[in-house]
Amino acid sequence: MNGLSRYWLPVLVLGFGIFVIGGAQADTGKLRLTGGVNSIDGVAGGGLTPWAIIGTNASAGERGVSAFATRVKPKDYALDVLGVVAGFNDRIEFSLARQEFDTKATGAALGLPGLKLEQNIIGVKVKVAGEAILDSDTWMPQIAVGLIYKDLDAGGLAPTLDALGAKQHGTDFYVSATKLLLAQSVLLNGTLRATKANQNGLLGFGGTAQNDYRVMPEFSVAYLLRKDLAIGAEYRVKPDNLNPSILGAGLKEDDWKDLFIAWAPTKNVALTAAYVDLGRIVPAIQSRKQTGWYLSAQVSF
C-alpha cells in the first residue's frame, strides 16, 4: 500500500502537467481572490476549510489550474504542503496535495526520531447550486459538495495506529455554502464535513473509542479591505476519536482556528498569512497548545 502510494501522486501530477500544457487558457476571467486560496488539503477555500467556490481563475466555459505551497509552523511541529488544483467551467474542481508533517521531538520521544507523517490527498468538488459572487440580490449562497480522499504513510508509527484501531486511509465528504455579501464587503462560508479523521488524517482515521463518521461544522468569515486584500477568521470543529485511547487522554485533539490575511498582488498570485491555533497535538508528549503561523503562496491561471 505505502509502496504504491509513493507512485500515484507523481503520476497524477504528471497528468496535470500534460493538462496544463495541453490547454489551460491564458486569459481566464474570475475576479481577483474569488477563486479562494488553498486549504491544507489542497481544496479551494480558506486555509483550514473548503469553500463552495471552484478554484483557479477559470470562469464559466473555461478551464484553469493553480499550484500552491504552504507551511504551517505550530510550536512543536511543522507541516509542509504542496499541491495543484484544476477547475473546469466554474463547476468542477480536482485537487491533489501532498502533506509532510514533521513530528520533531514527539517522534523522538516515541522512539521514532526523524518521524515524518506523509499524506497524499485527492479532492473532487462539484458546484450544485447558486452563484456566490454575482447573485448580490438574494441570500441564496453557492453550494458545492465534495469528497477528500487521504492516504497516510505513517512510517514507524503505523503499528501504533493499528493498535489504536485507526485506519491509514479515509475519505471526508462535505457540503459547503459560500456567500459574498457584496454591499457589505463580507464573505461567509459554512461547511459540514462528515469525517473519521484524527488530526486531519495525520493520525489515521477512526479509533477504538469512536469509529463512526461524525458530521463537523466549519465556519469562515472574511472582510474585503480592497479588491486585492482580505482579512478573516476560521473555526473548524474536529472529532476526538482517539480520546480516550490506550494512552488515556494523551491523544486528545481540539478544534482548529485561524486569523488570516490574503493578498493578491496580481490576478495570478495570492499570498496568505495566518495565525493558527491547532489546539493540542499528542498532549501525552506536548501538552501545550500548538499555536503558530501559516504561510501559503498560490499561482493560478
Binding site: I133, D135, L182, Q184, S185
Partner: peptide, 13 residues
C-alpha cells in the same frame, strides 16, 4: 472601496 461594493451590489445581479 466600500461605496464601490455597494454600487457593484446593485449591478452584479
Amino acid at each position: 472601496f466600500t461605496d464601490q461594493n455597494r454600487m457593484l451590489a446593485l449591478l452584479a445581479s
